[in-house]
């Protein structure tokens, strides 16, 4: 378990496959993207940040304490906006930092 693709959202742009540091994804030629080697995924979320349509989501396996939620990532004005989707709940958006602000 690692990243989950939603074929209905995928526009087959191939960005996810072009950035994957493990060469694990297949995309393009009009077919929706998919992960060829799900067990090899590192969980780095590079594909989430590359996807223009939130068509790929990260999930944490139960063996690692995951509760079934899905994390996706979009960009608004150069800033990353993360989204948590949980079964039966409204999605919750979580904006990333404005530039140079941290506070942790």
């Amino acid at each position: 378990m690692s990243v989950v693709f939603e074929p209905s959202l995928c526009v087959s742009c191939g960005r996810c496959a072009s950035v994957c540091p493990g060469t694990l994804l297949e995309a393009g030629d009009g077919r929706p993207a998919r992960i060829l080697f799900p067990d090899d995924c590192w969980g780095c979320a590079s594909c989430l940040k590359a996807c223009p349509r939130r068509a790929v989501r990260l999930t944490l396996p139960p063996a690692l304490g995951g509760l079934g939620g899905l994390l996706s990532c979009g960009r608004e004005g150069g800033r990353l906006v993360w989204r948590l989707e949980r079964p039966g709940r409204e999605p919750a958006d979580f904006p990333g930092d404005p530039e140079g602000e941290g506070g942790y």
């Binding site: 969980g43 999930t59 944490l60 690692l64 995951g66 939620g69 994390l71 948590l84 949980r86 919750a92």
Partner: peptide
């Protein structure tokens, strides 16, 4: 991101 997801799920 996996840890952040864990935080967010836990918070929710």
């Amino acid at each position: 991101p996996m840890q952040a997801l864990k935080f967010l799920e836990g918070e929710a």
